[in-house]
């Protein structure tokens, strides 16, 4: 059974532990600016929302890549960027309709969530269980909703 990240904004306090865990795991420094998961602050409403790649089945980023630098990790289902192959053309960053592939100007490559190979550091770090790593079926409904949101034009 594939697992996926379940994000529950109503539990988020905006502490950014997830961003630090992510950046430390991937970059070796505590650096929210380089985090693959981001917490969005809805200040006037007093709400927070962690958000990152849903590893969507459409895999817009993967298909848009002109040099096959984004591949599926068969054991986790994650779409992973192979840094050595990425040329930094950024086509995936405009192709991803969720805005979750970002260009890293320091490395000249793109970066996105790779589920840390199956043990996501953000979920470990979240103090309020706003981010959990669960069997995909639990998040099925949300995934369907989000997919519907980007494929079915609303009227």
């Amino acid at each position: 059974m594939l697992k996926s990240l379940q994000l529950e904004p109503e539990k988020c306090t905006g502490c950014l532990q997830c961003e630090m865990a992510c950046s430390y795991e991937n970059e070796g420094v505590f650096n929210p600016a380089k985090s693959r998961i981001k917490v969005f602050n809805f200040h006037d409403e007093g709400r927070f929302a962690p958000y990152t790649c849903t590893q969507c089945t459409e895999a817009w980023c993967l298909h848009a890549c002109p040099v096959e630098a984004i591949v599926v990790n068969e054991s986790t289902g994650a779409k992973e960027v192979i840094e050595d192959v990425c040329v930094g053309c950024k086509v995936c960053t405009i192709a991803c309709p969720f805005g979750t592939v970002n260009y890293n100007t320091d490395s000249g490559k793109v970066m996105k969530c790779d589920l840390c190979g199956g043990d996501p550091a953000c979920a470990d770090a979240c103090p309020t269980a706003a981010i959990t790593y669960v069997d995909s079926s639990y998040t099925g409904l949300d995934r369907m909703k989000s997919h519907a949101a980007q494929t079915v034009p609303k009227t």
Binding site: T13, C15, G46, F48
Partner: peptide, 19 residues
């Protein structure tokens, strides 16, 4: 009270957000 909120890195989150 709308919610509690955390400062950077805080796992307590005592901050108050109000209207």
């Amino acid at each position: 009270l709308v919610t509690n909120a955390a400062c950077f890195g805080c796992t307590i989150a005592c901050g108050r957000i109000s209207t």
